[in-house]
Nucleic acid binder design. Structure first.
Lengths: 272, 272
DNA sequence: CGATACGTTGATCCATTTCAAGATTGGTGG
DNA sequence: CCACCAATCTTGAAATGGATCAACGTATCG
């Protein structure tokens, strides 16, 4: 830990395509970071609107992407784990459509826009992997959209925990079956699109079903297979590198053995 | 039309940041297209999995992004209008997580990967705008996520039509208050995450409310203001260029004058 | 002209919301 | 250390939006 050569950017694309980066590129990336900051729970890492003079990478902790609606109520549209740039899109768009809020204590690194611009100009391969990192987020967004159609409350909740757990594990955090967060029922409600009251009941169902347990921010996976089934989880959308980092395979398109779908979806879905 | 200098890529970023492209760059972009094809309604433009040897730009018509779940039911997660690259993300990721299906007759252009790779290497400014185009799609994805939390069926339906209409208008299609599509109730059901039966009722409500009319693919906006209110539409996420192209302004964060929200959202939302 | 997909309407059911009231937790100051 | 407060969480009961089922219209097309 002390002699980690890349203390700021060591998690960038970890578990995804980090191995495509040469050592030289890893060093270039690391030297982008100008300074770091530690922010407390609930602090705004970014505010929607114009971006600042730097681009921000999450080094430690969780960050939540939330978007205000026209009634000023905010809705969670995603989250970031260490190694994710939280405002690379804002750098490209010159405008940010959402906030990023610390969930627990976080450490972030700041990259001056000028430095990043230079690297994008001079390092096409690195630039392409930065582009790729934004595209990976888009894939997760589409998965969230699909899951919000496919699954009902309990499934969406299960899927969020599966998603969170995988992404945390990809960057080497958490232990094998759980993680301590600062998430509240309110967060879960916003993430799953249900009321806080129903979060409570849904978590009880998951606990009593032996799927997972969530108490004051700490979640423990009670049974991985049950979680995968409840969430209809298929890790493909996370685009993990191949390799045995996390052993979790779901057969896609299994016909008869799969349990009945969470939602019947009469004829909501299109023929495939 | 006949002497349009950019018949294939003339809609790329139109209504967004197209004006940032120099004439030379517009020509470079246009010359990327190797050949074109016309595909009939319901044909698959792309299949999820490995991308082909070319990148595809939609030249005319609508294309629907759909994603199969583990029970092989497909869910619509977005759509493309002319000028959008439908698989630029696949080019970057070397993998596509969804299908793209023609909605009505479409015309597409094929760009050999090799040519695109060269342009990205040699034309950093153009490359950045290509990157930007993928980020714009991500912004739309997040808006869909937020709207599926914020609004109930009628609002989501209204929002889809507002989204569609705006994006169609940005690329100069449709007339001032409507458009002919090949969309069916099944599509709308998948897009809004409701049943086809409820689509029928929701469309009736919108029609009787004087908001919009949808009959056999043709939608007509009966009252723009009512549509904006029903959808809580704020065009910010589309990143339109400023200017009077489409007159549609919604005051954000208006406090008392706004009608009550579609969903009460007891305490599902976070304090902002 | 029948077949087939698409759209409509009514009746019933159920997942989830809302309202309401109480329990647990964490934080603060006396 | 305890009392108190605010926020968070839990549980019950009632209301509701939307799903499902079923039956019947209506285009479209060979």
């Amino acid at each position: 830990m002390a002699d980690n050569p890349h203390p700021f950017t060591g998690h960038f694309l970890q578990g995804r395509l980090r191995k495509e980066l040469e050592l030289r590129e890893l060093d270039v990336l690391e030297q982008l970071v100008d300074r770091t900051a530690v922010l407390q729970n609930e602090s705004k890492i970014l505010r929607n609107g114009k971006p600042s003079e730097h681009v921000t990478i999450l080094i430690e902790g969780l960050a939540i992407q939330s978007k205000c609606d026209s009634e000023r109520r905010s809705h969670i549209v995603g989250f970031h784990v260490p190694g994710d740039f939280v405002d690379l899109e804002a750098f490209i768009l010159n405008q940010l459509d959402h906030d990023s809020v610390a969930c627990g204590q976080v450490k972030v690194g700041f990259v001056p826009q000028e430095r990043l611009r230079k690297v994008i100009r001079d390092e096409p391969h690195l630039a392409q992997l930065l582009w790729l990192s934004t595209v990976l987020n888009a894939s997760i967004n589409r998965q969230w959209i699909m899951k919000s159609r496919q699954l009902s409350a309990i499934g969406r909740m299960a899927h969020f925990f599966a998603d969170l757990w995988y992404r945390i594990r990809m960057v080497g955090m958490g232990h094998s079956n759980g993680f301590q967060t600062m998430l509240t029922h309110r967060h879960l409600a916003s993430i799953c699109g249900i009321s806080t009251v129903h979060v409570s009941r849904t978590l009880r169902d998951l606990r009593e079903g032996g799927v997972l347990d969530f108490q004051r921010g700490r979640f423990i996976i009670l049974d991985r297979d049950k979680l995968k089934v409840a969430a209809r989880f298929d890790k493909g959308y996370l685009y993990r590198e191949s390799g045995p980092a996390v052993d979790c395979v779901v057969k896609i398109h299994g016909s008869a053995s799969q349990p009945a779908s969470d939602r019947k979806c009469h004829e909501r879905t299109l023929p495939s």
